[in-house]
Design a protein around this nucleic acid. Structure first.
Lengths: 349, 349
DNA sequence: CATGGCACTCTCGCGGCGGGAGTGCCAGCT
DNA sequence: AGCTGGCACTCCCGCCGCGAGAGTGCCATG
């Protein structure tokens, strides 16, 4: 990657900024006018030619203004990462919203998705916090009707799973409760592997339930995330390049399709740590449909305890100056939440 | 509403049909060609003029073809309602999908939404079945960390609610389980009002939990539906009239916003019975944003036991011949499900 | 009462045309 | 050297006008 002079770099940043809020190719003359730069248009043109040569800019047609390439955006984002603090007022607004929300993971996730979407004007997504390796905490068996019973399982961290099963013959609630009680004392706090290693149970009912529990735990362990909360999908449509086009529709479709979204999050999850922000520009994420999009992702939570992923997805031309600090801030807020909720006996404010 | 001659009626139906799959104003000449009618274009024109006069058709400009008005669609839909059976092959495909799905309300709802969206090429929505008046069935209290405890409540019918609460001082799991046990035997099968009428509990913890239970039950009773499952939202974008326009975006936004969607379903819920199909055309549903849309809705389930709402939302120009029987069929399938699941000890096939 | 003919209207696609914005290059100035 | 102003050139884009096509309403006729 070629070196940039100081001037070229500032120029590049200005060009990207201008393109982001104008959505039209930026030309030399307009640029000096709007940013009263110290150089003449001719000089700018020289530098622009150089930047184009180096692959940071691109012209849609000869004799049109310049548009940033993915590389160009990357430099811009690199610069954003260092500065970009969310205004205090906005921070307060966000904190206030969280403060007066109901407790409960589900509500918090919805709220976080909503905040991200509204603050950054793009589509947002977030997964609930969960431990790296799921641990059994509690199971409950409830007879619903006939031979059908509802199993409700709680994992350490508070995730609740439910599963329905039908037995070969009716069992009364008292026996179900007993069984659940025995399993609870036997399995509490154990991981999948630990449970799998236990000797098989004598009692047929207990055995059946344990198989089911193991199955659910395995499924949970395999999928990188549980439910994915999203919001602001329609924000994608405000991007002029997306409004009527097929590419915009396909990107939206991807967001609606949870399975692919899970893949996407699983990929980025692997090589990222809590606290670090990850910006995937264009095809960097590996998805054909998102060639005109970017993602800003972060992991949050407490490593070793429970972590989740959150982020936004928007047009490559999104306002990184807005999204990056927002994602970072919301990640911090949620990390605090996980900390309070799960790490110790501290009382939330 | 003016009377239609037999000929006018068949003509109107053909015109609507033609417009639905062509999306362009339909003219007299084209019409006779494509449907080899027994009348000449001139005759058609006469009738068209009459139908326009009566308010069933409309011309975008003088000297353009005709487009159905809301009234026109209504007549068309009225005719659809009677015939319109889903082909056996499609029925089998759908049944097959349900047959090999995992049990569990959540999965079934997702599947139903997916089936509706794919079969009818529009956006679908569905609410889980629930009793008219919620009944408590079971509660479980699980200590998570410090003073925080997780309350998991199961309602008759299998709906699972969770709520977090923090106590003023730590309580050990054994006591929580005891408390839950007492409440279970006390409250099992009771409705909100019955519970509210019970004498206040002595024990402080029990009292707190009961307040929480009552609160949750009330919230459930008030909201006409729990979570709303949707699918195929992006199908809306394939409608040419919606693709790039603001109106399409607003309609999508409405679908994304669950609160308004709940309102919408609540309204239609009130005056509709299981088995009956309801088609809301244009502004009939009372939503400004949906002035170019129609909804096909149905209630399913077993009245008095548990019911839910499902339906599709698409452009007014949607294929009713496809959506109406699909909605009806899926509603029937789900009614059967509710029946099997909750009504008695019959064994599913 | 249906039909064929006819004059009329209006949309839509297409080609041509200019203005505007932008570029690259070059000669000259500091 | 490096920046700057000037200049010729290119290309997009919006506008206009035109003609074809499709459709209509009306009327006279079978």
């Amino acid at each position: 990657m070629p070196l940039l002079t100081e001037r070229q770099k500032t120029l590049l940043l200005v060009i990207v900024r201008e393109y982001i809020d104008g959505a039209i190719p930026v030309g030399s003359k307009r640029l000096v006018e709007r940013y009263h730069l110290d150089f003449s248009p001719a000089t700018i043109r020289h530098e622009m030619a150089a930047l184009t040569e180096m692959g940071y800019l691109r012209q849609p047609h000869v004799s049109a203004g310049r548009v940033p390439t993915e590389e160009g955006y990357r430099v811009f984002v690199g610069a954003m990462m260092e500065q970009a603090e969310l205004p205090q007022a906005v921070q307060n607004t966000i904190l206030h919203q969280f403060y007066q929300a109901l407790p409960g993971t589900d509500q918090w996730m919805h709220l976080a998705a909503s905040v991200l979407a509204h603050q950054s004007h793009v589509a947002s997504m977030i997964t609930a916090p969960r431990p790296d390796t799921p641990r059994f905490q509690h199971v409950e068996l409830i007879s619903t009707q006939g031979r059908q019973i509802l199993m409700v399982m709680v994992l350490a961290g508070g995730e609740v799973l439910q599963q329905l099963l039908s037995l070969s013959e009716p069992v009364e609630q008292a026996r179900l409760s007993q069984t659940a009680g025995r399993l609870n004392s036997l399995l509490a706090g154990r991981t999948v592997n630990e449970i799998a290693a236990l000797p098989s149970r004598q009692d047929a009912l207990e055995k059946d339930i344990m198989v089911l529990i193991l199955g659910e735990l395995r499924r949970t362990a395999e999928s990188a995330s549980g439910e994915i909360y999203t919001d602001g999908l329609t924000n994608m449509l405000s991007e002029p390049n997306f409004a009527g086009t097929e590419s915009g529709r396909r990107a939206l479709r991807l967001l609606e399709e949870r399975t692919t979204l899970q893949d996407l999050i699983a990929r980025t999850t692997s090589n990222s740590t809590v606290g670090g922000l990850q910006v995937l520009i264009g095809t960097e994420g590996g998805w054909e449909e998102l060639s005109d999009c970017s993602m800003v992702l972060a992991r949050y939570g407490v490593p070793g305890l429970a972590t989740g992923t959150l982020g936004v997805l928007g047009p490559m031309r999104m306002s990184y100056a807005r999204t990056i600090p927002t994602v970072r801030f919301v990640a911090d807020v949620l990390s605090d939440l996980v900390n309070q909720r799960m790490a110790g006996p501290q009382e939330p404010a």
